[in-house]
Design a protein around this nucleic acid. Structure first.
Lengths: 333, 333
DNA sequence: CTGAAAGCGCTTACAG
DNA sequence: CTGAAAGCGCTTACAG
């Protein structure tokens, strides 16, 4: 079904049919009606390729990830897809799988497909090489900071998230707080430590053991480190963990050591990885990166750039504290 | 950069430039060379819209999910994206979020974008209404069975997966086997029971307790049901669980009851949800649905249909048993 | 072997 | 208000 068919059925020219369908003023009301009916009758859908060829706009954006299989890219994608769908934009999804050649290939492909813009999804707040040089349309980086300050990067505020968690513990009168986290090579681990230490200092407290326990992002490490902690520091009353897996492991180990959570020792995780955090025993208080909103925020900024108002620099989106039983439930209201 | 620019730089007509770039025979070798060089120099990328307008093929497929946020759609998407990328096809991703209106909207959008075919991703093997009537291009259903037997549905073989799990337990000389699973309303739960009971019958065994324990897909239910089982049936020596969360909960409850896993009671999960199954204590033997391969299989069949060889009916892709410590490690070799 | 012409489906000045 | 014509960037018969 093409516009020609519609025009023929309505007894007008394709030019008039086009104008009628696109609600441009210069068409007689009854002509428009006839065209609309014809289009309806034929279930006419304008060919987007032809439109794009003329307008140079395809209402399509390319979403390029490095590691779609990772845990973080996906919620971002979800949020972006949502936001784009609401604006009648479509997403072309490409997963470079950490391969630079493949990434270049996808950039070319997406450009050949005339996408209106790019969203580059990282898998942590860490720095990543800018690729904007190769791309003549607007680009937004999300959950991964472009090395080029002229680019726009939308990141999660890990330092702020850790502040929220620590303030929560301090507010619950916990004084002997320890920290178990992932490898120090991760910016996420370091930023969270920064936020934690800042709040402890403001509260006149110091970290139990003096140093964060850097390790892996696993339950196994959480169990191991928690056992070490309760053995070495019997007076510990809270553990802030760098992610939910560590926290789940720590909770398990503590329970096995006869320590009650949260009565004796409160635990806070990070990530709000639902299946882990909410189904843990006890359910974990944790920090939510709000990844979906990160995705939609990126889309918002991409639209702004498409509308001629590009931004640059780094935007740090706040995290949210999710309180569950592992730090004691809030009083009912 | 358009073909016109390339032709001008190479000193030929656009027609000749087109032929040279598309490796059609009828061009003089040195002419082709000049065109290729010009294209290279200008980093020419042919406009896919123009090509699509002529050929009627866009090398784009629409991937429509019902619930992208669920745990199962995503690996399927990954597998499909991989397989499509290898064939230079792009994916337009749409998440209907369980809303029929939104789904219809996306179907129209994707058709207007002239996609070459559709992949409809379900979130369980359950039946789902066919939407092929509305779609004039090839459609493949994956992990969700179309109600129309003329459609092609690619499913995971849950019954076979449960057989693998049960045969494994029986092979380990377990005789008192129980089953904890999710709601009976799920076809996945029912199909797995069918496979389990078949193997038990073939082995002259019967299910401990007579009936599967239907409940929820959660750790909490796993813990609860496992406690009931060990109390009511002290001689139980294996529990086959309907998913990994249930299995993780069951393992935890058994350990707390002083039962050793796998020495006293072996546990098998389902789904091979890595973060849960491998990081559990002990790591879980489980059944992998091979969702990524499900996605790539769907793509393979979609290509076959695009090449004029459509199939129909139901394809059941085998599951894989992943053996870990919860049933005893295989002897080292 | 090369290029002028027609055409894919649509939109947009421009005449009338 | 309506429609013939040009054109978006490309490909493909068809002449030469």
């Amino acid at each position: 079904m093409t516009l020609t068919d519609v025009a023929r059925l309505a007894g007008v020219s394709v030019a008039t049919a086009s104008k009628a369908l696109n609600a441009r003023g210069e068409v007689a009301p009854d002509t428009r009606l006839r065209v609309l009916q014809a289009a309806n009758q034929l279930s006419f859908q304008p060919n987007v390729l032809a439109r794009g060829l003329i307008s140079g706009r395809t209402r399509t954006i390319g979403l390029l990830t490095d590691e779609l299989g990772g845990r973080f890219a996906f919620p971002i994608l979800l949020g972006a897809e949502n936001a784009l769908g609401n604006e009648q934009m479509s997403v072309l999804l490409c997963d470079a799988r950490g391969d630079a050649i493949r990434r270049q290939h996808y950039i070319r492909t997406l450009l050949a497909r005339q996408v209106d813009g790019f969203i580059i999804v990282g898998d942590s707040n860490d720095l990543r090489p800018s690729i904007s040089r190769d791309i003549p349309v607007p680009v937004v980086y999300v959950y991964g900071q472009s090395t080029d300050p002229n680019d726009l990067s939308v990141l999660a505020d890990d330092e702020g998230g850790a502040r929220l968690a620590t303030e929560h513990l301090v507010g619950l009168r916990r004084r002997r707080i320890a920290h178990i986290t992932g490898p120090q090579s991760y910016r996420a681990a370091r930023d969270r430590v920064t936020g934690l230490l800042a709040v402890l200092a403001e509260s006149g407290l110091s970290l139990v053991g003096g140093e964060p326990l850097y390790g892996e992002w696993s339950q196994r490490w959480g169990r191991h480190a928690a056992r070490m902690l309760v053995t070495a520091h019997r007076d510990i009353d809270a553990i802030f963990c760098g992610n939910d897996q560590i926290a789940a492991g720590a909770a398990q180990a503590l329970l096995e050591h006869g320590r009650r959570v949260p009565d004796d020792i409160a635990i806070v995780g990070y990530d709000n990885w639902e299946d882990m955090a909410a189904d843990c025993r006890p359910p974990l208080t944790t920090v939510d990166l709000d990844l979906q909103r990160l995705g939609s925020t990126a889309v918002t900024h991409l639209f702004a750039a498409l509308d001629g108002s590009p931004a640059s620099g780094v935007i740090r989106q706040p995290c949210r504290l999710v309180v569950r039983e592992s730090t004691g439930l809030l009083p009912a209201h």
